[in-house]
Design a protein around this nucleic acid. Structure first.
Lengths: 204, 204
DNA sequence: GTCTATAATAAGATAGAC
DNA sequence: GTCTATCTTATTATAGAC
């Protein structure tokens, strides 16, 4: 087994376990098992748990940002932009739910670790998703396509309607006694729901 | 120091630490320090960490449910109900942000513990908040006050717009480079924002 | 670079005196 | 009920052979 491959195996395993159990809940032995390598190699490559953790958070944030950039939409109208953004964003969230739980939890628990990494990474990549959306909104307001508004308010509503359902779905489906197919239907309807609610609120 | 008081001290401290650090991140010694009692007493009163944790989660969920019940609104119209509900709910969230992070994280991490307690507690108290809102919606739809709709869709949008901003605020304020007073203003505007967006979508 | 063995430490749990 | 001291176990981390 050569260097690069082992390191990759460990990183992938560490990511899986950290995201699932959090920094403290994760065990070095568990990560080693998941990676199929000797526990000692985690220390060889990453010195200690702390550094392995930091590296995992860094990689997640970078991937997240790249995905968001990829989600960026070339659209002539704000309506078209919004429709496409919601569509792609929800698809993305479907496959990456766990990352958001993990990041938000770790950020709140220990602001100095995850939050710093996130901001540094954003800045090194030329801006935040927030800046991107704010610009789109302001352009559309100026062009008279949508009513004048405070961009952060809208961005926050958009993020809420997009992201939150994925957060609470495990609890929501119990509390609402929804079976699996009902949950599936609900998430399918979600894209149109979110677009309709927001668009009705802002269109001229 | 008599029995009841010590037990209360420990419970309050355990809640603070568990909510802040999660089940694994919390240390028995840390809880003892926070409570100002000998570490050994945690075992005397609650046998082990697991049982102390369960007790804390139970208490939080019960308090949450009682608060929601207290939030219940006697209103003649759905419009009035919605307005008041949002107002009280956001006020409540302002003072209880951390609990939601904690509960959602613990639920996702280990469904069998927190989720079971939550559902049991809901049931022992005669129903979920979800049932309550669903009933209100269906009544208002029948009365022709609002358009026909799928109740879970609306409940989910309501919950998203209400709760999510509190979740992401620490990150959002960095990413959006908002200072403290801007965050304060934004949260103040939130009640009207949420009501307007939702009401425009459902009114007849 | 990888392994086995083991050290070092941290953390939960208990015994027994008061 | 509460304390000090201690045990036990779990977990991270390192030494040293190959």
């Amino acid at each position: 087994m050569d260097e690069a491959k082992t390191e990759e195996l460990i990183l992938a395993a560490a990511r899986t376990i950290f995201v699932r159990k959090g920094k403290e809940g994760a065990r070095m032995q568990e990560i080693a098992n998941e990676a199929g390598v000797n526990k000692m190699l985690l220390h060889y490559y990453f010195r200690n748990k702390e550094q392995l953790f930091r590296r995992v958070v860094e990689d997640i944030v970078k991937q997240l940002i790249i995905s968001v950039v990829r989600i960026s939409v070339q659209a002539d109208t704000f309506r078209e932009f919004l429709e496409t953004f919601i569509d792609r964003h929800i698809d993305f969230l479907k496959s990456n739910q766990d990352i958001f739980y993990f990041l938000l939890w770790e950020i709140r628990k220990d602001e100095t670790i995850a939050k710093d990494i996130i901001m540094e990474t954003f800045m090194s990549m030329g801006g935040t998703p927030f800046d991107y959306i704010t610009e789109k909104i302001n352009d559309a307001v100026e062009a008279g396509e949508i009513r004048p508004m405070h961009a952060p308010d809208f961005a926050l509503s958009l993020a809420s309607l997009d992201i939150f359902p994925f957060f609470v779905m495990p609890l929501f489906s119990s509390v609402g006694r929804l079976n699996e197919s009902q949950v599936e239907e609900l998430l399918e309807r979600r894209k149109q729901e979110v677009f309709r609610v927001l668009w009705n609120d802002i269109k001229r």
